[in-house]
Amino acid sequence: MDRKHILVALVQDRPGVLNRIASMLRRRNFNIESIAVGHIEQPGLSRMTIVVEGDDANIEQVRKQLDKVIEVIRIADITGESPVAREMAMIKVKATPSTRSEIIQIVDIFRANIVDVAPDSLILVVTGTSDKVDTLIELLRGFGIREMSRTGTIALPRGGPGPLTIEENKPLRHVVEQAAPEEENLPDW
């Protein structure tokens, strides 16, 4: 069954990384919802959050194909770990003296912020789940949206160390250079 999956990847900051990843997704005909990239606490590394739609087998293919990209150090599908996932949107909406207070009420309900006020419009910023942002946009549509800009989703798994957590004094990636002992609990492949 097709559903949205959130993949997170730790990648090396090298020229062309985004191109390589986008190229892989396009070439294998995977359906990208969004990609968000930014630096992390460790220099030289970035984190990508990729939202793709597909069935479980399809998404496992995406994960494995992206893992083959040399600059991808680690990649994980964190959909099943009910991660905290957020995106942000900036919306410039028409505001007349008669509609302004109604817009401000909606903004309050959605815990959005008004960051710019002009005589005939407002710019507001909202962060939240994809659904929340969608709902707000639908509500504001009636007032007239002049322009808007929306980021892709970024996400972190809840609680203790996640699949992308960098631990001190440990290699960035588990090195499999010799046969693992039988009892060791490794993933299936």
Binding site: I70, P171, R173, H174, E177, A179, A180, D188
Partner: peptide, 15 residues
């Protein structure tokens, strides 16, 4: 120095 390139050369014993 390619931290993202670690081919798996040995099979999983349980498999």
């Amino acid at each position: 120095d390619l931290p993202g390139f670690k081919p798996k050369l040995f099979g999983h014993p349980a498999q």
